[in-house]
């Protein structure tokens, strides 16, 4: 089989000679046997560990090697043919493109068959959570202000209180974060308020982040008054741990993006059986009725497109549109113009 070399991937993510993967976190969970399931994931270890433990209880013979990387590193790793048995990522556009370009292998079981049509594509890629993008605020720094419920109100509050919010708003640096770019492009497509919000934030000297967790930390610490487009599941998990009441989650009523966290078995995987078993477990949990103790939410009951603006982002070839280098360059130029006004 001829593996297509996708120009885009090489241009964008070949930042210098990438000899080693930039691994943010790594842990090996030894099993009783000699089989090792190698997982590459964008999900923080703290969030994903309950799933790993559950899997180890079910399959004690399998060791698990879990590496946390950024979504772009994950994309590059799979393009480069790195040896992983399962790829889990929140950047569903990059995941989709890998599957489309032939870097994923088919997997099919009764558990994956049970997933709704919009939560899987060609038996290659499977969604197991629906996670909305939210606004996280520091309650103390919002004292005396009415909480915004729509982007219009948010724009008004930011515009009317430049002193309070100057240097205190944070959002994804969409140049670095795959998930941030996905949220930004989907918002660009869905609401025109997005660019006006960017203009307003740009005037306030926004702080740009690579990851949701750091943004939430900074909001909790009071370094940020507001973080825009944060992964709701992380914020909720953080809120559960941190009971200070300092952090509040706002869900915009006018429009809300919901991302699907997806998993696939890379074409180069060795332990396909164990990887399939983990996908089965995730797919089964994705359809659970009660939220339970799991850190990540299940699939939303509403399918893609059922509630306009609130359903999950559709898993389909349209995701590749914003990954096109020309489109990406144009989008980033516009974004930089809005965000970097100083």
């Amino acid at each position: 089989m001829r593996i297509p070399v996708f120009a885009l991937g090489l241009i964008l993510w070949a930042l210098g000679p990438a000899t080693a993967l930039e691994i943010e976190d790594h842990r090996l969970y030894p099993g009783t046997g000699d089989r090792i399931l190698r997982i590459v994931s964008t999900t923080d270890l703290a969030v994903f560990e309950p799933y790993i433990q559950a899997f180890r209880r079910a399959q004690p013979g399998v060791s698990i090697d879990y590496s946390v990387v950024s979504s772009s590193v994950l994309h590059r790793a799979i393009l480069g043919g790195a040896q992983f048995d399962l790829a889990v990522s929140s950047a569903m556009d990059l995941q989709f493109q890998l599957a489309n370009d032939g870097f994923a292998q088919r997997y099919n079981s009764s558990a994956t068959e049970a997933l709704p049509d919009w939560a899987r594509w060609r038996d290659l890629i499977f969604a197991f959570t629906t996670e909305p993008a939210v606004v996280v605020i520091n309650s103390a720094r919002f004292a005396g202000l009415s909480l915004p419920t729509t982007r219009q109100e948010l724009i008004a509050i930011l515009r009317d209180n430049p002193d309070r919010f100057s240097g205190a708003v944070g959002t994804y640096d969409v140049r670095d974060s795959g998930l941030g770019y996905l949220f930004a492009t989907q918002e660009d497509r869905s609401t025109d308020a997005y660019w006006r919000l960017n203009e307003v934030m740009g005037r306030l000297g926004p702080r740009l982040y690579c990851c949701s967790a750091q943004m939430i930390d900074d909001v909790a610490e009071g370094r940020l008054a507001l973080a825009y487009n944060v992964l709701g599941s992380y914020a909720a998990e953080r809120l559960a741990r941190d009971s200070g009441g300092r952090v509040q989650i706002l869900k915009m009523q006018d429009f809300s993006n919901a991302m699907l966290r997806t998993a696939f078995v890379p074409a180069s995987a060795q332990e396909t059986e164990a990887a399939g078993a983990l996908i089965d477990m995730l797919a089964t949990l994705a359809l659970r009725e009660a939220p339970g103790d799991w850190p990540l939410p299940p699939l939303s009951q509403a399918g893609a497109g059922q509630a306009i603006g609130f359903g999950p982002i559709r898993l389909g070839p349209a995701l590749m549109v914003y990954l096109d280098p020309l489109n990406r360059r144009a989008f980033l130029t516009e974004w930089e113009n809005a965000m970097e006004q100083r």
Binding site: P4, F6, A7, L8, N100, D101, G102, W121, R122, R189, R314, G316, P317, A318, L319, M320, V321, Y322, D324, P325, L326
Partner: peptide
Amino acid sequence: YAAFAMLGAISEDRVFYRVTAADRMLTGY
């Protein structure tokens, strides 16, 4: 966006594309 969304709407088929100007590659596969 619609150009690819319409392809995704009719089937779960893999999609590839390319744009060339004269013989110069502009974008795609």
